[in-house]
Design a protein around this nucleic acid. Structure first.
Lengths: 165, 165
DNA sequence: GTTGAAAATAAACATGG
DNA sequence: CCATGTTTATTTTCAAC
């Protein structure tokens, strides 16, 4: 028999998960309303949120801005293939990708490709300039494949919170 | 000569952009502090934020949760190739991808591939189950390529706000 | 931009598991 | 001892001017 609020391996009980589910949708929800929904006092909700922030479960609290509305209508997915997986070269590439503001997201992946980047730019020529900086200038980049996004069907950071082990 | 706060095509002046830059990093920043940084009163900041929310420039306010800390240590990039671009079939695929909670992000792209998905799962067998549901079950999916993420180098929704046309 | 009321956040305290 | 709820203080949000 398992207690109703038993902690999973992550140290989160079902109250924490319920709170997270709400904050992932709207982190401006007052603690009082969250409390009503999860059946805790506002103070308890407050303490749990602070703890999860301190623990890094909540990595940040951010406004999500529509790129198209701030002059960056183009989203591009880039698959980058590198020559050598030498650690120093790899780290150099990671660093240069991470530092580029046009690069929203960067993943180092197994399989065919080596990196997958999600890039936001104003124009194709801005993208071209970015490729020069990030790829042509880096001799460790063997090739890259450009996938222009026609439709951003789903763009969120939300993580499913049901069925947490 | 252009006024210092001239609106770009998006209707945002440099104050709005400065506010957005802050909110993209931390949307819990008090309006009073934002005001100090951008040299506006807290009330002016408040009104601008509300307007940008109403206009959809700010699409949402969310807590960013670390997937690894809530039982989903695996991130996977999936490239999906479809058979037919018939509109009804395409829409069906889009809908099924968007509705799956494991799918954080879904992009419809030009070029070689047709869709790029960013998926978060607890285990490989959960991913396998997802592929059965989303890909094998959908006869319009020709093939898909799985890229397992080894390192999430950068994962944000932040949009660069300098040099806005 | 300033002021003032309403509301939310955050701390302090006492209590039960 | 840790987490909860209640109370109190502080800070922030938000509307009016």
């Amino acid at each position: 028999m398992q207690s109703e609020t038993a902690n999973g391996p992550s140290g989160l009980d079902r109250f924490d998960l319920a709170i997270l589910a709400i904050l992932q949708r709207d982190n401006t929800t007052p603690q009082r309303l969250i409390g009503e929904q999860v059946h805790l006092s506002a103070a308890a909700v407050h303490r749990r949120i602070r703890r999860m922030e301190a623990d890094g479960v909540i990595a940040g609290n951010v406004a999500s801005v529509d790129p198209g509305r701030v002059g960056r209508p183009l989203t591009i997915v880039v698959e980058v293939h590198i020559e050598s997986e030498r650690l120093d070269l790899l780290d150099g590439a990671k660093k240069s990708f991470a530092e580029a503001p046009e690069v929203q997201q960067c993943y180092y992946v197994t399989g065919d490709a080596d990196f997958v980047l999600i890039v936001t730019v104003a124009t194709m020529s801005e993208y071209e300039a970015l490729t020069r900086r990030l790829f042509f200038q880096n001799h460790n980049v063997k090739r890259f494949r450009t996938l222009v996004v026609m439709d951003r069907i789903k763009t969120s950071l939300a993580v499913p919170l049901d069925a947490v082990g």
